[in-house]
Write a protein that binds this DNA or RNA. Structure first.
Lengths: 262, 262
DNA sequence: TTTTTGTCGATTGTAGACAATTTTGACTTG
DNA sequence: CAAGTCAAAATTGTCTACAATCGACAAAAA
């Protein structure tokens, strides 16, 4: 009989993650947090030196980021942080809307009382943030709220793709962080979403989610256009807010392809 | 004044695709066509030698395939062709249903007469295949039909993810190819889908697409379970059918991140 | 001046070498 | 004969070296 396997975090980490995984995660964080901005050139030798590794594993990590849509690789020219154009952002929002509709339907059918209590708590927190005019925390909670809903929907494939889309979307001009004034608008919609889910009405919950995302799309795009025309106030993003995406998406739910059948 | 740029196929190919891209495409074809089966070990040195390249580019291609969900990489152990379990197949079908619902809605709103004529022609071809009991061509046309619909929907992000899902789904036991007897069932549903799209009724078209995918899910899963229990006739897949997925998904619509703003 | 051509430095693409780890298989031991 | 041991072989992880390509600047020509 063999001794029970106790998971030791450090050992497990060393066993499961190679340099490639670590570097991939590190670069993703740097991109999501905005330390690497869209359009920025990622020179292999520079980054490799900075991380204290060789170019091999770094290039492998780059390929993963490329496939995930976070960087763009051009032959003989190098790796660049992707810049998401408006058209693509719109596409992502539309796609998200369809996915969130499914999320709403599934939750309306399957959510448990404790889960319902949990998301109610999240909405409460958001309303508090609104009252305190705490933009940073409101957005953080908003991201976590939707992320949680997707996870609770019980479709891990859906959750994985949803997260990918959110990550890509964070590269859309990196302006969404600054839109403090449109914060309170969506707050009430969240209440309605939870209400629809709690009622068990799949159609209503799906519709509420769908509409919420579409509204969010309209606000974000409109804001972005205004921003580009230089007609807005140009609110400055607080330094701390730069970690928003990285924090909210600190992935505990990374999609696990399939466990070894050893 | 600068001379017009004439696209020279060979030169363009050399400029745009490196070994990594070529190897990635080649391996994907081998997986989709079934020449590499789920669970199979992909030894670096063996494949590198077979392709006449070094391990570096091959490893980069592996990372891309991993991110796309076609292979699984385990540290110090190697690369394996992924095996999609039933649960994941179900998740993919549910997700596809939501996406196809969006496709139906968009098409009902935006499709043009010539496009409508095109997809009607595809349905005609499918019905001919049904009458001729040509299973292979029916499935090929079916894949192309849905692929075309997704593309016509006009959301390239949606199309890209849809294709990824279809590719992953092709790794689900690799049995879907054999289900000849359920061929005629979905044929009539296609007519109904086109009809709903043509009517311009977004809700109806979305619902038709959604239901169609869900039906497809039920049939595929049920068939798979029967297969696993050894209760079915065990129809043998014709050799030519192995190229089905690879042929249908020969990607002319690969998602282009964003063009350089040079 | 303006345009073209040549050269150099920097960076990426690929290959090969070595280190670390796993797997294999013969051998022992109970 | 099953189970454990251990060294050799195979395989993967990482690094270094060299070749190929690009971008920029200088020199030459128009």
């Amino acid at each position: 009989m063999s001794a029970e396997v106790i998971a030791h975090p450090t050992i497990t980490l060393l066993q499961t993650s190679s340099l490639v995984n670590v570097v991939h995660a590190e670069l993703e964080q740097m991109i999501l947090s905005g330390r690497l901005v869209p359009g920025e050139k990622l020179t292999e030798l520079t980054i490799a030196a900075k991380l204290g590794i060789s170019r091999g594993p770094l290039r492998e990590a780059f390929r993963m980021l490329e496939e995930a849509g976070l960087v763009r690789i051009t032959k003989n020219r190098g790796v660049f942080v992707r810049d998401i154009p408006v058209e693509e952002a719109v596409e992502i929002f539309d796609l998200r809307a369809a996915m969130d509709e499914l999320v709403g339907r599934k939750l309306a059918e399957n959510i448990t009382p404790p889960q319902l209590k949990e998301i109610r708590g999240m909405v409460d927190s958001m309303e508090k943030a609104v009252k305190a005019k705490d933009t940073y925390h409101y957005h953080l909670l908003n991201l976590k709220f939707h992320d949680r809903l997707v996870v609770l929907a019980g479709n891990s494939k859906l959750a994985a793709i949803y997260r990918k889309l959110i990550k890509e979307l964070s590269l859309f001009r990196r302006l969404n962080l600054e839109d403090g004034w449109l914060m309170p608008i969506s707050a009430s919609e969240h209440r309605q979403i939870v209400k629809a889910i709690a009622s068990g009405d799949a159609d209503a919950a799906g519709k509420a989610m769908f509409e919420h995302v579409m509204d969010s799309k309209e606000r974000t795009i409109a804001h972005n256009l205004r921003r580009q025309q230089g007609t807005d106030t140009g609110a400055v993003m607080p330094a701390v807010a730069k970690d928003l995406w990285a924090t909210a998406l600190a992935s505990p739910v990374k999609y696990i392809p399939n466990p070894e059948k050893s």
